[in-house]
Amino acid sequence: MAVYTTFPHDHPTQQIKCIICYESVPLYDATAGSLRADGSQAFACNHHLQDRHAWITAWALFDIEQEQLRQDSKDSESST
């Protein structure tokens, strides 16, 4: 598996941080998941996809954390 971006043309050495093991891995060793609270793309290492239990739990936790961050951000905006 490999992730390429079309602009700028490919970053095979681009490093991303896995949301499951927090290791820094090249983009081509990663697979995309949902979005962070700030709208940026979150990734996990490809091999985590093989571990159904870890994959489900980690992303469920990640999503709820990001949702909380989004909510906190909305709350602070509305209080100012």
């Binding site: 598996m1 490999a2 992730v3 390429y4 079309t6 602009f7 681009q14 991303i16």
Partner: peptide, 9 residues
């Protein structure tokens, strides 16, 4: 990460 047009996996 740069902002891409798309990602291709």
């Amino acid at each position: 990460l740069p902002l891409p047009d798309w990602f291709i996996d």
